[in-house]
Design a protein around this nucleic acid. Sequence first.
DNA 1: CTTCGTCTTTGCGCCAGCGCAAATAGGAGA
DNA 2: TCTCCTATTTGCGCTGGCGCAAAGACGAAG
Lengths: 232, 232
Amino acid sequence: MGISSTDLRRAGLFRGLTGCDLTGLLAVARPQQAAAGTTFFLADDQAARCYLLTAGYVKLVQAGLDGAEVVVRMVGPGEIFGWVAVMGGSCYPGTAEAVTDSAALAWDAEAVRRAILATPLLGLNALEAVGRRLREAQDRVRELATERAERRVARTLLRLADQAGTSTSGGVEIAIPVGRQLLADTAGATLHTVSRILAAWDHQGIIGGSRQRIILRQPDRLRALAEDDSEA
Amino acid sequence: MGISSTDLRRAGLFRGLTGCDLTGLLAVARPQQAAAGTTFFLADDQAARCYLLTAGYVKLVQAGLDGAEVVVRMVGPGEIFGWVAVMGGSCYPGTAEAVTDSAALAWDAEAVRRAILATPLLGLNALEAVGRRLREAQDRVRELATERAERRVARTLLRLADQAGTSTSGGVEIAIPVGRQLLADTAGATLHTVSRILAAWDHQGIIGGSRQRIILRQPDRLRALAEDDSEA
DNA sequence: CTTCGTCTTTGCGCCAGCGCAAATAGGAGA
DNA sequence: TCTCCTATTTGCGCTGGCGCAAAGACGAAG
């Protein structure tokens, strides 16, 4: 479970850093835990720290006016979160809630600024990480604007499998407890629609699983649904 | 029109840099122009350069599977674009098309990496700029997932006014030629729906203008439409 | 002034997906 | 094993907004 200290070197954020730099960074990091269902920070909190997830899974959630929740991003081990607000010196745009018991390393905003100024490569790595996420966010904008719910759900499942997939005999299992509601919030649909879609796929043998567990039995067909223009 | 060299210092990207750093950066920048309707780069081009817009307006567009276009972002003077792909060393995720005659400064990917390593503050500034955009993109994800077309259009108009608004006697005029189609692509709706909505607002005196020109006559009412839960 | 092309409006039909509500089904804990 | 609680399924009606198609308006060019 989680990633070891030596694995940190392989995390994108620290790529290319010297052992010395790494030691310094770890020295000022504060380990922090969050049990499933609890939060690292809330939306509109003053952004004081940024995080690197070392174990577990965290969902970044924004609440709409009417109480609807949107999962802006699922964070897995080795990924960073909370950096955007810290750089801008503002408030967190969303809430970071642990989906499973999670652990992270936290840095104070000022410490991060200093670290980047001292180790420019860290800034470059962070820029790349944030850039990748911007790209993902833009892709989601396009998808939400142009694609139907079914396809968005397919993409969401594939993304989750990519991020937390475990190959088993029966297919790829998603190692995060994903309920229909969470899936709906992530794909930009409603609980009901997601349930209907998954039920249909279940009957077709494309997916399987039970409560909170999803297994992709035929990832290829899902991929086809997600990308093909016409359907099988 | 556009921003002068001295204004660059005030552009977020260069905040806090020394005159010396700035001079060095400008020395390796290549000025580049694009007439309205032409492009700085195309989607899936190998990302070789990143840009700082000095004059005009540029839209970043992604094409959907079915030919539908989505405007991922409108870029105004002083803003940067094309940085994400350059940092990741990949292809541009979208096309950058000039909406009006535009001018920009371009840097080679490698030059930017070197500049950031040499001037870490530049990296911090870039991180902040990209972060702000990530935040905007995430906001749009939430809006597309939870809000109705009318509200999204209202928000889009307010954003454009914020970015390129000119106060006139009759209200705030958007200084970019914005057609219904462009508005639709930006708000995540269709040409028809946008036309209907704008026609209704026109009758109510909320907006005005003619072909490709939009004037916000009562920005407050638009704001109410964009943010209020109940309507007037 | 006329013509042409693009942008815009508007009517009408349709359907994906939401909203409500109620029935089920699994799991976890006692 | 039994019970309770939460997750999930599913029926049904409704509607926002898309899709098509055609007409109308404005500007630019000649």
